[in-house]
């Protein structure tokens, strides 16, 4: 592949990823916003009418929170939700610095791939065995876990695409 074709491929991948990331963040945002509403309503119902929303705790903890955090990972990372220590970086010339950052992305992608793979195993296991947690209803365990492999997979792709894109290492949020 020529370097021009390679750049175009990476650019197209970046474009496609953005579209998916934007959908995921809307779903994740809705989940977290919904959690706030449920938690507040539960407290008010409990306090005023002694009638708590008994489904709220598990719904929030095991589903909405996992969904919200996981689906926010790739979009959050792309839009600057990361913090790195610039102390040494700033003393390194731009060329090697970009290389370092690319290598860092790949290292992080490997770490997250393991996490993604392990969580995927747990998720498929829960779905295959139809694991149900007993509560006010039978809560399906798989639907609590599935968001993690999705979010992690998209984050790994984002890290890899960034590792092979042109970027300005001086911009705190490159996108």
């Amino acid at each position: 592949m020529t370097s021009g074709a390679f750049k175009r491929t990476v650019g197209a991948a970046d474009h496609a990823l953005r579209a998916v990331e934007n959908v995921l963040i809307v779903v994740g945002g809705a989940a977290i916003a919904l959690a706030m509403v449920f938690v507040s309503s539960d407290a008010v119902m409990r306090h005023l009418f002694s009638a708590p929303l008994t489904f709220q705790y598990t719904l929030t903890e095991s589903y909405l929170m996992v969904m919200g955090f996981s689906l926010a990972l790739p979009w959050g990372y792309r839009t600057g939700g990361r913090i790195r220590i610039q102390l040494l970086l700033n003393t390194i010339p731009k060329g090697p610095r970009i290389l370092l950052l690319r290598a860092g992305n790949i290292l992080a992608a490997i770490y997250l791939t393991f996490i993604c793979w392990q969580a995927l195993g747990k998720t498929t296991d829960a779905f295959v065995k139809n694991d149900l947690m007993m509560g006010v209803i039978d809560w399906p365990v798989g639907w609590s876990w599935v968001w993690i492999p999705i979010g992690m997979f998209m984050l790994v792709l984002r890290l890899l695409v960034d590792a092979f894109s042109d970027f300005d290492p001086d911009a705190p949020a490159a996108h």
Partner: peptide, 10 residues
């Protein structure tokens, strides 16, 4: 807790 007529708060 529900069977006793009370409300469970997690």
């Amino acid at each position: 807790i529900e069977s006793l007529g009370a409300a469970p708060a997690e």
